[in-house]
Amino acid sequence: MKLEEVPQEKKNFKDGDKAPQKVLYVTDNLGSYTQTNSAGWEAENVVLEQAWEEIDHQLKVAMQQVRNGKCSPITYYMIKNRMDISILSSYVNKWQWQVRRHMIPVVFAGLSKGMLDKYAKVFNISTDELKKLP
């Protein structure tokens, strides 16, 4: 990439004003490499936005499923914290199948206080909040 081709396409994300400048290595007109800054690039913004849209979409689906009694709130909070089952299971120190089981509302209702506390701590919320949706 050449120095004059460096994109400066800043995107206003939710709190993107804190976003640091991106350091790039580019060639000047003599072909030697220098360091420069870029505010962002359209292609990169598109895929980052897409990743967030996907999370929002999954959250909506999960919210509906919890309301319909198909899942426990653990599913919702897992997605909210951008986790998947394998990450969540290593945080609460359980097997993946156990976490999947805890996502069944009937099983969730019977979980011990200790187990609920563990989940709440991982999601950084109180145990009462864990039992219902925001």
Binding site: P20, K22, V23, L24, Y25, A43, E44, V46, V47, A51
Partner: peptide, 21 residues
């Protein structure tokens, strides 16, 4: 596809999957 590009271009890679670096 989006994930591919995020790994290649996102902050901390210097762009184009470290090839310029």
């Amino acid at each position: 596809l989006g994930n591919l590009i995020r790994m290649q271009e996102e902050i901390g890679t210097g762009g184009a999957g470290f090839r310029f670096l």
